[in-house]
Design a protein around this nucleic acid. Structure first.
Length: 948
RNA sequence: GCUCUGGUGGUGGAAUGGUAGACACGAGGGACUUAAAAUCCCUUGCCCGCAAGGGCGUGUGGGUUCAAGUCCCACCCGGAGUACCA
């Protein structure tokens, strides 16, 4: 009987569906294991061959765990809100819900063909009101909590109000936008609006005027991770800085826990590093510099109200080398301290700097610009007067937006000083006491090593010690303190878009109020136009029915808005990461309509044991989800502080493009690759990889491919046209996109699964190339043939092959080395074929071993060998060590570390026996040439090395 | 610039410090066939040699070791992340 995958695969896919083989319960006597894939955004292009790579790897592991006796949760769903569907809607008028539905149907069809063990009864879609109800609910909890640094966790905002009422801000240490100080009396005297404003300063989901990444083309604000090089990740449109009132999530409150948590999870070092860099923790000191009163005349400030400048530095040891100060153009003190004669110049600069686009600013990083304010600060340790400048190389969002400039030991300060002819003073030397004239330098000495010089009481100290000594001193003097800064910014949470979760917020006299939790979900309204409104409001501004009736607790027509009982609702929607931040928890209990998920469900599943997905989510989803989870953990809902215990990054699948070469002399002539003498004579043209096989062009299909090639002529080699190739991104425009369905139709899902794994290590980026798929397909045919042999008495050789395979496959799966596992199967089947093995005692365990990799053929063979139940419920075989012991070992023999020949020796040989055998052998005598060994290294079972 | 990765045959890749190139593709040769497909067998890192055999070989240069693709130092090249973060 032939291996007929086209018949076998749909048959067992139906069987699995009908028998709900992949349905998982939230209780079991078995141990639990949770395997999760990053759910896809269902794009219009459908799945390409890169998507299933991770899904196949996780599916193998999930099936393996099940065979090892675990109750395995392995769900799938869709990240269904997003920009592409909405952009498409703007262009075509097609409602995003419709295209999303179609795309999901297509994805599902493609996924089903590959034979995954997903429990589809747990499917979630982020755009489904039953799901986003809980996204909105979580947002409300964030709104209703603040982060208490003393408790080290989120606490209800009501507790904060109580505290304010009792003692004001006395003793409070909480994450906030602006530090505030007030008394209980003040708090109690304030009206509701004022109090709401103050509380907003502390809420974990808060509204503030912030500089945002505004993308005019997309008509929305973007998060930092959605912008690269001043362009939007989606679409590549310019992004500018704009001050807007926006919702943000106070993720910075969790910065330290996000850093610390990385030590507890099993992620790749590189991904942990990406997150650490993104969070950007740096230790240093905050130091206050007084502004010098002598330079300020009446009209600027009264002497007694002279401000102090707070700066942040990671190099307090260099404080004796400060020769100027720099403020960012947004700094609030600029106006106060600028002297009258400098005012025009400074204001001109500030206006110019503020209006530059982010892209311009980044493109001209090396161009130095700035202006002197006319004011001076006083160095608190030297009493020296130092000029205060304004420059856009100091960023508003980091530290305090002001720095002490040490040009000798900071490359940016150095460039600035050189440009404006400011003094440079060396205060650190690499060799103790050895200094040189900074005027001769071409660059600053930035290293955090060496010794202090010209630095008062720290002169001669090592840099590390000097840092400590200076901080101690300034703390003593009360002019500064040790502190930590993070590069991480709060996550801007509003998007001026339609296709996202609506905020459950309405506005009473401009103050945001939450919709009652039991009124959720607040469903996305219908609009007639997906573009912004004529007045520049987000698309929800088009909705007719988008007002909140406070008394009746429901959404009503906008026309009824009276600001007494009926109020306008928020017009922004939430960003893509809202829905994807907690989806893994919802899978645990996806149909619960009373809660996000039940305490029992989370108590059972805990967190994700294995998460598989792309490293490109390192600074987006994987940070937001950890934050979201930590917040829910603080609320007592999530069971673990970290959501994803182990994480595997599947490498990107690159495209492998094929080229034909058109002669420059003759526009209709194509030269086979080997016939080209000089690449300058030809033009390489991308050709669809689907009409190329093993780099050989299908000439007829090429002629039919495009009208201009209809009567193309070819210069062939050996009667064939050989194409060139190159590794590029997989993209439609390069005609190198491979669709998994085509391969499933041609070779079957099991072949596709095995081949994707065989390609190389899961974590490594690699080009997609179907050239090797035949080999994997041949392997499955050979496996199939093996079961055609009649059952026979088992031989010792066959058992050895089997047990060796069991051990290797088990080890390989445990270390996610699926490519070597496939090789092991090939070796096993080759050997059993040579042995003509038909023994069911060997073939049955083999069926189970291969079931996670090639579930369809395994299920078929399992039933052919007489089983009535699914192979998914079989028991993973154990290897028996007795079959692994060898009686003779072929020892490699080295002389002076160079391998010369091998010699068979009994397994238990001692060093003396091995040496004697070598000396007695002709090969040994030839290499020894009668010399005596000076030293012999004998590694039992491995090697013998004779040093002469 | 900084951080992280990786560099092994014609190709994808394998190798707890212990026989470098497993497994597969491709290529070459052969068997079966009227022929093709399918299947099977042999060869296949490079160089010298009829062979036996030998020399060289994991980006480059050093080092540690009885022994290095693997560990250490320096450098070169590719990929990814990040980018005035004080």
């Amino acid at each position: 009987m032939e291996y007929n995958f086209g018949e076998i695969e749909p048959r067992w896919q139906n069987y699995w569906r009908e028998h709900a083989v992949y349905h998982v319960e939230n209780h079991s006597a078995k141990p639990h294991y949770y395997v999760l894939d990053m759910f896809p955004y269902p794009s219009g292009a459908g799945l390409h061959v890169g998507h299933p790579l991770g899904y196949i790897a996780s599916d193998i592991y999930a099936r393996y765990k099940r065979l090892r006796g675990y109750n395995v949760l392995h769900p799938m769903g869709y990240d269904a809100y997003g920009l592409p569907a909405e952009q498409y809607a703007i262009q075509t008028g097609q409602h995003p819900a419709v295209t999303t539905e179609q795309n999901i149907a297509r994805y599902r069809e493609q996924l089903d063909k590959i034979g995954f063990s997903f429990d589809w009864s747990r499917e979630v879609r982020t755009c489904d009101p039953k799901y986003y109800r809980w996204t909105q609910w979580t947002f409300l909890q964030l709104f209703k909590h603040y982060y208490d640094n003393v408790a080290g966790k989120a606490l209800p905002i009501a507790q904060l109000e109580e505290r304010f009422c009792r003692q004001g801000t006395e003793g409070l240490d909480a994450a906030c936008t602006q530090p505030m100080t007030f008394t209980a009396e003040e708090w109690c005297s304030w009206d509701e609006a004022r109090r709401a404003e103050v509380l907003m300063n502390y809420r974990l989901a808060y509204q503030a005027d912030t500089y945002v990444n505004w993308c005019a083309e997309l008509g929305t604000v973007l998060a930092n991770d959605e912008v690269v090089n001043g362009l939007s990740v989606r679409g590549g449109y310019p992004v500018e800085r704009k001050l807007m009132r926006q919702w943000s999530l106070r993720i910075t409150a969790y910065a330290q826990r996000l850093v610390d948590g990385l030590d507890q999870v099993e992620w790749s070092d590189s991904l942990k590093e990406i997150q650490r860099n993104w969070i950007g923790r740096s230790e240093g000191a905050a130091v206050y510099f007084k502004v010098d009163s002598g330079q300020l005349t009446v009209g600027n400030a009264v002497a007694s109200q002279l401000p102090t400048l707070e700066i942040f530095t990671t190099r307090p040891d260099t404080i004796f080398g400060v020769t100027f100060m720099v403020l960012c153009p947004e700094h609030e003190l600029i106006d106060q301290i600028t002297t009258p004669e400098k005012r025009d110049e400074v204001m001109q600069y500030v206006t110019w700097a503020k209006n530059r686009s982010e892209r311009e600013r980044q493109a001209e990083v090396k161009k130095v610009s700035g202006v002197f304010t006319g004011a001076y600060a006083v160095n608190p340790l030297t009493e020296e007067k130092i000029p205060i400048w304004v420059s856009d190389y100091v960023l508003a969002g980091y530290g305090t937006g002001a720095i002490m400039a040490v040009p000798a030991h900071d490359s940016r300060d150095f460039a600035f000083a050189r440009h404006f002819n400011l003094p440079i003073r060396q205060v650190v030397s690499l060799e103790k006491g050895v200094t040189s004239d900074p005027a001769t330098w071409t660059e600053s000495i930035d290293a955090k090593t060496g010794y202090s010089v010209n630095s008062g009481f720290v002169t001669g100290m090592k840099v590390k010690d000097a840092m400590r000594a200076v901080i101690d001193k300034i703390e003593q003097m009360g002019i500064g303190h040790r502190t930590v800064n993070y590069r991480l910014r709060d996550a801007i949470f509003s998007r001026q878009r339609y296709w996202g979760e609506p905020f459950p917020i309405y506005y009473k006299q401009g103050i945001p109020y939450p919709i009652p939790e039991d009124c959720l979900p607040l469903e996305l309204p219908e609009v007639k136009d997906f573009k912004p409104t004529a007045t520049g409001e987000p698309p929800l501004g088009h909705a007719q029915r988008w007002a909140w009736d406070e008394a009746h607790r429901c959404v009503v027509e906008n026309s009824q808005i009276d600001h007494q009982n009926i109020f306008p609702l928020e017009l922004s929607t939430m960003p893509g990461f809202a829905g994807s931040s907690g989806y893994y928890l919802r899978y645990m209990d996806p149909t619960n309509d009373q809660a996000y998920f039940s305490p029992q469900a989370v108590a059972y599943w805990q967190n994700v044991d294995l998460y598989v997905g792309g490293a490109e989510h390192g600074t987006g989803h994987l940070i937001y989800a950890r934050f979201w989870n930590k917040f829910l953990f603080d609320l007592g809902m999530a069971a673990k502080d970290e959501p994803f215990q182990k994480l595997i990054n599947q490498g990107m699948i690159q495209g492998r493009s094929n080229f034909v070469y058109r002669s420059k002399q003759d526009n209709n002539l194509f030269l086979s690759k080997g016939l080209i003498k000089d690449m300058a004579d030809v033009t390489p043209i991308h050709v669809d990889i689907n009409i190329v096989n093993n780099d050989i062009l299908d000439i007829e299909r090429f002629r039919a491919w495009r009208p201009e090639f209809a009567d193309a002529r070819f210069q062939l080699e050996d009667g064939r046209y050989i194409c060139g190739w190159e590794i590029e991104k997989m993209s439609k425009s390069m005609f190198n996109v491979q669709n998994p369905d085509d391969l499933v139709a041609r070779y079957g899902a099991d072949t596709l699964r095995l081949y994707e794994m065989f390609l190389g290590p899961v974590e490594q980026a690699k080009p997609w190339d179907t050239n090797g798929i035949e080999g994997v397909h041949r392997f499955l045919k050979k496996l199939w043939k093996l079961y055609g042999n009649a059952d026979s008495e088992v031989t010792n050789e066959a058992l050895k092959v089997l047990h060796k395979t069991i051990k290797k496959i088990t080890d390989d799966i445990e270390r996610f080395s699926f490519n070597t596992a496939v090789s092991t199967f090939m070796i096993c089947v080759n050997q059993l074929t040579d042995l003509k093995c038909g023994s069911r005692q060997v073939l049955e365990p083999l069926t189970i071993l291969i079931a996670p990799f090639a579930p369809h053929i395994a299920e078929e063979l399992w039933h052919q060998t007489g089983h009535q139940t699914t192979v998914c419920d079989a028991t993973w075989p154990q290897y028996d060590p007795q079959y692994l012991v060898q009686d003779t070992v072929n020892y490699p023999v080295q002389f002076n570390g160079k391998m010369r020949f091998t010699i068979p020796l009994p397994a238990g040989s001692t060093q003396a026996e091995a040496l004697a055998a070598v000396q007695a052998s002709p090969d040994g005598q030839r290499w020894m040439e009668g010399r005596e060994p000076r030293k012999v290294i004998f590694v039992p079972g491995k090697i013998i090395n004779i040093v002469l």
